[in-house]
Computed example of a mutant assay.
Amino acid sequence: MSSIEVNGKSYETDEEGYLVNLAEWNEEVGGYLAQTENVTMTDQHWEVINFLRDYYNEFQIAPAVRVLTKAIGKKLGPEKGTSQYLYDLFPYGPAKQACKIAGLPKPTGCV
Rank of each mutant, 00 (worst) to 15 (best):
T69M: 10
D43I: 03
N21A: 10
K70N: 13
E58L: 11
K100M: 03
I72S: 01
K106H: 04
T42S: 15
K75G: 04
K106A: 02
T42R: 06
Q60H: 14
L52M: 12
F51T: 10
I72Y: 04
F90A: 04
T40H: 11
E37W: 00
D43S: 13
E5I: 13
P63F: 00
K100S: 04
G30V: 02
F59V: 13
H45N: 15
N26T: 06
V29I: 15
E47S: 13
L104V: 04
E15Q: 12
S83Y: 14
L52N: 07
T82V: 05
E12G: 08
V20A: 05
D43M: 08
T82K: 10
K75W: 02
C110D: 15
S3V: 05
W46E: 14
C110E: 15
E58I: 11
D88V: 07
T82F: 02
D88L: 04
A71Q: 11
L86S: 00
G73K: 04
K9R: 15
R53T: 09
T82P: 09
K106Q: 11
V20C: 03
N21K: 14
C110P: 01
Q84G: 08
G109M: 01
K80H: 03
G73W: 01
V39G: 09
L33G: 07
E28P: 11
E79Q: 12
A98P: 10
V29T: 08
G77T: 03
N26Y: 04
E16T: 09
P105W: 04
G8Y: 06
A98M: 01
E37Q: 13
G103M: 04
F90E: 04
L76A: 09
K96C: 08
N57Y: 02
E37L: 06
G30D: 06
K106C: 08
G8T: 09
N38T: 12
D88K: 15
L19A: 09
I101W: 01
E47Y: 00
W46S: 14
E15T: 12
T82D: 04
T108L: 12
E5R: 15
Y32R: 07
A71H: 07
N26S: 11
L33M: 12
V67C: 11
Q97D: 06
E16L: 13
K9E: 10
P107T: 01
N26A: 08
E28F: 05
L86C: 01
A34V: 07
P63Q: 07
K100L: 07
I4E: 08
L19H: 10
K9S: 05
G17R: 08
P105D: 01
I61D: 14
G93L: 03
E47V: 01
N50A: 09
